[in-house]
């Protein structure tokens, strides 16, 4: 039995159940508790999706900060792309750059790749071991180190704390 995976799955399922129902009466809460405890016990007995997640207070705080950083970057991404689309000269300078990540956990890499896809002018084209190949709409630096600093590090410093 891995208590950690089942526990996290339980919290997520129960949260979904409450959000979907929108009411907090006793029968709904009891049904939700029972069902969201049984499902992970059957289907998540051997999964290791959340195994690398840290459950310290600092990790929770950083998760919260990460959401805000991400929302801000998402808005910035859209203003940036909008500017390029509207501008008559179509100011793009695309290219595929290679960046390096320090993250080891699969889940953290997935979150990093998704975040890169949704933020200013970049999206993840391929992942090979510790390198990510990123299509950048406005290449500022072709060098691996410099591109890593520009694209990856603003997310990595938070994910490092959350996932290790």
């Amino acid at each position: 039995m891995n208590v950690k995976n089942i526990g996290i799955s339980f919290v997520i399922l129960f949260g979904f159940w409450l959000l979907l129902n929108g009411t907090f009466t006793t029968p709904i809460i009891v049904t939700g508790l029972i069902v969201s405890l049984i499902i992970p016990m059957f289907f998540c007995a051997r999964c290791d999706v959340f195994a690398d997640m840290r459950l310290t207070p600092k990790a929770f705080l950083y998760t919260f900060i990460y959401l805000f950083v991400f929302a801000f970057e998402l808005v910035k991404a859209n203003l940036d792309v909008t500017r390029r689309v509207i501008s008559p000269k179509l100011p793009i300078n695309p290219g595929i750059v290679k960046v390096k990540t320090k993250l080891k956990s699969k889940m953290a890499r997935m979150i990093l790749a998704n975040s890169i896809t949704l933020t200013p002018g970049t999206f993840t084209l391929a992942i090979e071991k510790k390198y990510l190949y990123i299509h950048w709409i406005d290449v500022q630096d072709k060098d691996v180190e410099a591109a890593t600093k520009e694209i990856v590090q603003k997310f990595e410093k938070y994910l490092e704390v959350i996932y290790g």
């Binding site: 695309p94 750059v97 290679k98 998704n114 896809t117 999206f123 084209l125 391929a126």
Partner: peptide, 28 residues
């Protein structure tokens, strides 16, 4: 959304969909 666009782009690249002439660098 990001997962589906990543898979689309990745498979397009593997099947050799060409990049535009403006492309400056292609590390992959």
């Amino acid at each position: 959304n990001p997962v589906s666009s990543h898979v689309l782009a990745r498979n397009a690249y593997r099947y050799g969909v060409p990049l535009s002439d403006k492309t400056t660098v292609d590390r992959l």
